[in-house]
Structure formats: structure tokens, C-alpha cells
Amino acid sequence: MFVKDCMTTSPITISKNTPILEALEKMKKLKIRQLPITDKGRLVGLVTERELLTVTPSPATTLSIFEMNYLLTKMVVGEVMVKDPITVHPEATVEEAALIMRNNKIGSMLVMADDELVGIITQTDIFDAFIDFFCIRKAGTRLVLQIHDRVGAIAELTEIIKDMNINIRGLVIHRKANDVVHMVVRVSTIEPEPLVKELESRGIPVISCTIS
């Protein structure tokens, strides 16, 4: 799955002269937490709800509430925006996007292609993508198997499941110590007992079995 498959296309943008309160109101109305900032069609920055909410006078200020509100109405997003925000290409993989966001501790990234803003991808989009990876919204069984990391281990497992006439909906490897891995497999059946018995009879321990 690529960024282009799960991003929000044609994101709503604002100008750098947009008042902060107006930007916050737009976010609230549209139920979004970030807005790209453009100038004559060119991306110049990004502003997030968190940044806007922190733009308030110090608690020690002597300004009245009316004076503070007046100042906020005069402040524009260009004063607090993130310049040169981190971006990603639409052909990047979802896991690449997740790693970039994790390493930079950000909740969203703008998607750029040939200097054109084509979308935005958020943490929620990535969560949804990984949920789709495992078909969690469809009934099935989640198995955690303990397997030695060796050539042919996955082929052997998939052959066993195929012979049981069961479909694999998702599979991921979690590496443990030494050459041991935990293989998380989501299968289509909601009656996993025969499969569990077959796996264990073949020397594949089933650490966990959850029907959902």
C-alpha cells in the first residue's frame, strides 16, 4: 500500500494572512487538525491545531480578556506556521511514511508531487491502513505462532493453512531473541480448533488464538 492509496486528496488550504481564530474555526467546522498554507498556489507552510491553541498570552500578562482577544484577532497563521514542513511523495509506502512521522514526532505530512500539493496523510490514515492490512473489520481468527527463523518457514505454514482450505488475510513477523520469531497470522475461519491442532501436530506452537 502506498501513500497515494490512503491520503486525503485535494486538501483544504489557507493563506498565510488568515487570522488564527478563523483558522481554528475552520478546523473545528471541518473536524481536521492541520491546514496547509499556500501562497499563489505554492506551498509555504503548515499550521496545526496544537500550535494555534498554544498561541496565547502568558498567564502573567496584565492584559484584560478583551485585550487578549483583540490581539488574537490581529494575529495571522503566517506568524506561527511551520515553514518548509516535512513532505512525502505519493509513491512512498505507508510504512515509509509511518517511519518518517515517528522519527520526526509529527502527526501528519503533506504529500507533494512535482512541487504540487496533492494530498495530506495523517496518523489516522496510517492506523486505518494497518487495520486494512489485517482485515480486522472482517470476522476471523488471529493466531500467534512461534517459529524458528529459517528458509521455507513461511512456505511451510501457508501450505498447511491452504490444505485446511482456509484463507490467510494478514501476516506479519515479530522478531524475538536469537532465531525465534512470532508470526502473527489472521485467517478467515472463526472455528480455528482443527487448524490449531494441525499446526501443533506439525511442531508449530500456537502462542495465542483469538476469534474476532
Score class of each variant (00 low, 15 high):
3 V>C: 05
3 V>P: 03
11 P>E: 09
12 I>W: 00
13 T>M: 10
14 I>G: 03
14 I>A: 06
15 S>D: 09
16 K>M: 13
16 K>E: 15
22 E>A: 08
22 E>N: 07
25 E>P: 02
26 K>C: 04
27 M>Q: 14
28 K>L: 12
29 K>R: 05
31 K>N: 15
33 R>G: 15
35 L>R: 08
35 L>K: 08
36 P>R: 00
36 P>I: 11
38 T>V: 15
41 G>C: 10
42 R>S: 08
44 V>N: 02
45 G>D: 07
46 L>E: 12
47 V>Q: 10
51 E>H: 07
51 E>I: 11
52 L>F: 05
53 L>I: 11
57 P>M: 10
57 P>H: 06
58 S>V: 03
62 T>V: 07
62 T>W: 08
62 T>Q: 12
65 I>Q: 11
65 I>C: 04
67 E>M: 09
68 M>N: 06
68 M>K: 12
69 N>F: 00
69 N>M: 07
69 N>L: 08
72 L>Y: 06
77 V>E: 13
77 V>N: 12
79 E>Y: 11
80 V>T: 10
83 K>P: 00
87 T>Q: 01
88 V>N: 10
89 H>Q: 07
92 A>S: 14
94 V>R: 04
94 V>E: 14
95 E>R: 00
98 A>G: 10
99 L>I: 12
99 L>P: 01
100 I>A: 02
104 N>G: 09
105 K>W: 06
106 I>S: 09
107 G>H: 08
107 G>M: 04
108 S>W: 12
109 M>N: 04
109 M>W: 04
111 V>E: 09
112 M>E: 07
112 M>R: 02
113 A>W: 00
113 A>L: 09
114 D>C: 03
115 D>Q: 13
115 D>H: 14
115 D>K: 15
116 E>H: 08
123 Q>C: 01
123 Q>N: 11
123 Q>S: 07
125 D>H: 06
126 I>V: 08
127 F>Q: 00
128 D>S: 13
129 A>G: 01
132 D>L: 10
132 D>A: 13
133 F>I: 14
133 F>G: 01
135 C>P: 01
136 I>Q: 09
136 I>D: 07
138 K>D: 11
139 A>E: 14
140 G>F: 05
141 T>N: 02
143 L>D: 04
145 L>H: 04
146 Q>Y: 05
147 I>V: 15
148 H>R: 01
148 H>M: 03
149 D>S: 10
149 D>C: 05
150 R>A: 09
155 A>T: 01
155 A>F: 01
157 L>T: 06
157 L>W: 03
159 E>R: 11
160 I>A: 04
161 I>P: 03
162 K>C: 03
162 K>E: 12
162 K>P: 00
162 K>G: 06
163 D>G: 01
163 D>L: 10
164 M>K: 08
165 N>G: 08
165 N>E: 13
165 N>T: 06
166 I>S: 11
168 I>N: 05
168 I>Y: 06
168 I>S: 02
170 G>V: 06
171 L>T: 03
173 I>T: 15
174 H>F: 14
175 R>H: 15
175 R>F: 10
175 R>Q: 10
177 A>R: 12
178 N>L: 11
179 D>C: 00
188 S>I: 04
189 T>G: 02
190 I>Q: 14
191 E>G: 01
191 E>L: 03
194 P>G: 13
195 L>R: 00
200 E>R: 01
204 I>S: 04
206 V>F: 03
208 S>T: 02
208 S>D: 12
211 I>A: 13
211 I>Q: 12
